Simulated scan of single mutants.
Amino acid sequence: MFLGIDVGGTKMQFAVGVGEDVFVLNKVPTPSRYAELLQVVEEHCSEAEKRFEYAGKIVEMGIGIPGTFTKERVVWVPNIPCLEGQDLAGDLRTRLGAGVYLGNDAQLALAGEVWKGAGRENSNAILMSIGTGIGGAIMIGDRIVKGRRGAAGALGWLNLDASVPGDKNHGYLENYASGTGIAGVGETHVPPLSTYEIVAKAKEGDSFCRKTMDRAGHLIGAGLASVASVLDTEIIILSGGLSEAIETFKKPMLDSFIEYAAPGVEQVPIVKSELGNLSGAYGAVRLAMVRGDMWIG
C-alpha cells in the first residue's frame, strides 16, 4: 500500500494507493510545529493501515511540499517555516519503516494529472497553477523535470516585458496575472475590489472587471506560448483556484496563445485540471508507487 501526502500552507491532504486505485482520505490543518507534523503523518499511516487492512502495510510514501528540497531534506518552504532545513524523509523513514520520497507540489500535481487526470496518454506536458501566485511543472518523455533545487517549472517567473524592473520575490507573470496581481488592479478601483469580486463581476459583464481578466488572460496566453514553443509539448493543463474561473479569461488567453506560439504549437490543447485540488495528492501516491523514480535532473 502507498501513501501520498500533499502538504500545503494551511492544509494537508492524504490519499492511499492500492493497486491502481486511489482512495482520498481526509484533509487536516497543517501543524505549525515539526514534531506535531510528524505525529500527524504517523497517525494517518496507522489509520490507513487499519482501514485498508487487506492491502497490508504502507511500504512507500510520497510527499509534496510547496518549496525546494534535496533527496532527503526540505530546503525552503516559505509558507511552512517549521519544515525548513528538516530531514523530513529520514525522520519519517525512521518512525514508519517505509520508503519516503519528496517532491514539489506543482510537479506532483502534473504527475497526478498525467496519471489519472486531464493529461492521460500524454508523455510531454506542461502544468500551470494559477492561484494566489503562479507555479508550474514540466514533463518530458514521461519524466518530470525536477531541477537542481527541485523547483523547475516556476512559470510565474516568465518575463514578458524586460522594461519592467525585476522583483526578487515574485516573477513578472505572477505579479501581473495571478490572483494577487488581479487583486492589485482591484485596489485601484473605487471602491476597491478583491480578486473574488473581480471574477464575479467579470462574469456579469462589468467593464473594469472584464478588462482586468482580459489582461490577465492575455499575459497567461503569451507566457504559455513561450514555454510551449520552447518545449514543443503535447498538452497544457491549468490548475489552481483561478483555473476554476477560466471562462472569464479563456478567449483572450487562447487568442494570445495562438498569436505568440511557434508554428504548429498553436494547436496544442489547453485544458483545465480534472483532479482539481486533489492532483497533488494523486501525484504523491504516484511518486510513492514508482519509488521516487519519476524525475529528470
Rank of each mutant, 00 (worst) to 15 (best):
G184K: 12
L96T: 02
D161N: 15
D255C: 09
V7F: 02
L224N: 08
K11R: 14
Y101M: 01
E113K: 15
V24P: 13
Y196L: 13
G150R: 11
M253Q: 09
W115Q: 04
L92H: 01
A202V: 14
N159E: 02
I270T: 10
T30F: 06
E47Q: 15
V75K: 12
W295A: 03
M1N: 07
S129H: 01
G8T: 05
K116A: 15
L102R: 04
S46V: 14
K201S: 03
M139S: 03
C82L: 05
G141L: 02
E187S: 14
G131C: 03
V114Q: 02
A89T: 04
A225G: 06
H189A: 02
M289S: 15
S194P: 15
A55K: 13
M294W: 02
G90H: 10
P66F: 04
V268K: 00
A262D: 02
D105A: 11
V164Y: 02
G56E: 03
T180M: 11
G8A: 03
A245P: 08
N122S: 13
I134D: 06
G141V: 01
N122E: 10
A281M: 10
R215K: 15
V145N: 01
M128W: 05
A137M: 10
L155P: 00
G166T: 05
D105Q: 10
I198M: 12
A225Y: 05
T248M: 01
F14D: 13
G19R: 08
G133T: 03
Y172P: 08
L160T: 06
S239F: 00
D6P: 04
S46H: 14
E49C: 04
E187D: 09
I5Q: 00
A261K: 06
D232W: 00
A48D: 00
Q13D: 11
A228C: 15
L173Y: 05
L173P: 01
L238N: 14
F23L: 05
R291F: 03
V227E: 01
V77C: 06
I296D: 09
E43W: 05
V268S: 03
A284Q: 08
F208D: 15
G186E: 01
H44W: 11
N79W: 00
K251I: 04
P191F: 04
S207P: 04
N122F: 15
E259G: 03
N26Q: 13
I270H: 12
N124F: 03
L254Q: 13
E43D: 14
A35Y: 01
A151C: 13
T195E: 08
R120Q: 15
H44F: 11
A222S: 13
E53Y: 10
T195S: 12
E197D: 14
G62H: 01
R73A: 09
A35V: 10
S46T: 12
Y260R: 11
G97A: 04
A109K: 12
S178A: 07
D214N: 15
